[in-house]
Computed example of a mutant assay.
Amino acid sequence: MKTIKRNGQVVEFDATKIEDAVKNCILDAEGLKAPGTTVDAANNSRIHEIARRITTLVVDTLKRRDRENVHIEDIQDQVELALMREGHHQYARA
């Protein structure tokens, strides 16, 4: 599967980018990326587990569609839907 970026460039799909984006979203939403805060996101199992779960749900959804290319906006929509379905509304809004 390939990803179509906003600039039209087509690149290999990389699920780790979804996981990283979800982790950053959680950190932002919880105010843990603000200057002066200390959080060891690399060792925060709760954040990792949420990000892994959301990534798995999104990748499974995209694979079921059986498309060769997927637009980045569609990936973002799927991440938002997965977050809401899992009850993480505050992260989906962020």
Rank of each mutant, 00 (worst) to 15 (best):
K2R: 15
K2I: 04
R6Q: 12
N7E: 04
E12H: 09
T16D: 05
T16Y: 04
I18R: 00
E19G: 02
A21C: 00
A21P: 02
V22K: 00
K23N: 02
N24Y: 11
L27H: 01
E30Q: 13
G31N: 01
L32H: 04
K33Q: 13
K33P: 00
P35R: 14
P35E: 14
G36Y: 11
T37H: 12
T38L: 14
V39E: 06
D40P: 09
A41G: 06
N43A: 14
N43T: 04
N44A: 07
I47R: 00
H48T: 01
H48F: 05
A51E: 03
I54K: 04
I54H: 03
T55F: 03
V58P: 05
D60V: 10
T61P: 02
L62I: 13
R64C: 09
D66M: 10
E68P: 01
E68G: 11
N69V: 10
N69C: 14
N69L: 10
I72H: 01
I72T: 05
I75E: 08
I75G: 09
Q76S: 14
L81M: 12
A82L: 09
R85V: 08
R85H: 11
G87F: 05
Y91M: 01
Y91P: 03
A92T: 05
A92C: 11
R93K: 15
R93E: 15
